[in-house]
Amino acid sequence: MELLERLVEAVEDGKDEEAFALAQGAMAVKMDPLEVVDALTKGIREVGDRFERMEVFLPEMMLAARAMQKALEPIAPYLERQSEGREKKGTVVIGTVEGDVHEIGKHIVALLLEVNGFSVYDLGSDVNALDFIKRAQEVKADIIGASALMTTTMPGQQEIIEILRDMGLRERFHVIVGGTPVTQDWAEEIGADSWAENAATAVAILEEAMIEGRGYAGTTL
């Protein structure tokens, strides 16, 4: 099996130490780092697709993501030299709103965004509305993602949008909302830019939003 093929397989199988060693090997034989990263990205997206089809489960996807991070360590120094001007898909600040401690759904969205090429800043759970905005400004984010898992915490999503308006920043960020009780109707009622029913949909919506220029800051790697 080719070295690159073995590396992708190690990442897909979540074997982080093997992935690290193979990536080191790939750089030692002077493989094109961009080509390696593209192959790895394709592989990790396949893992994400398999998760959506329930052919693999969250533990496998998390291990694959970790192996991907590990494989990128020896590649990163070579990549930096070659990737000037190469665009990241976008920068996302994501979290679960104030008063809500549910994390797993948001965590899966963050994970899938990351493996699909977004820069993701995960603020965790029980996040104050203003903290979302401050962090988004700080990292020059394109997107704010707010999750709510309880009907009584959904107003936290509304607060983010209201504060953005009051600060004159509403047009600066694409705001996407999600979570079990959150619906398209609610997203429209509070003036969110988009609503995603699940993690895969969130990735597709935000990829499209960035292409259409609805992510506002724009970032480069």
Partner: peptide, 9 residues
């Protein structure tokens, strides 16, 4: 509208 951890809750 009720919001968790506030007097409305």
């Amino acid at each position: 509208r009720i919001k968790a951890k506030t007097p409305t809750e």
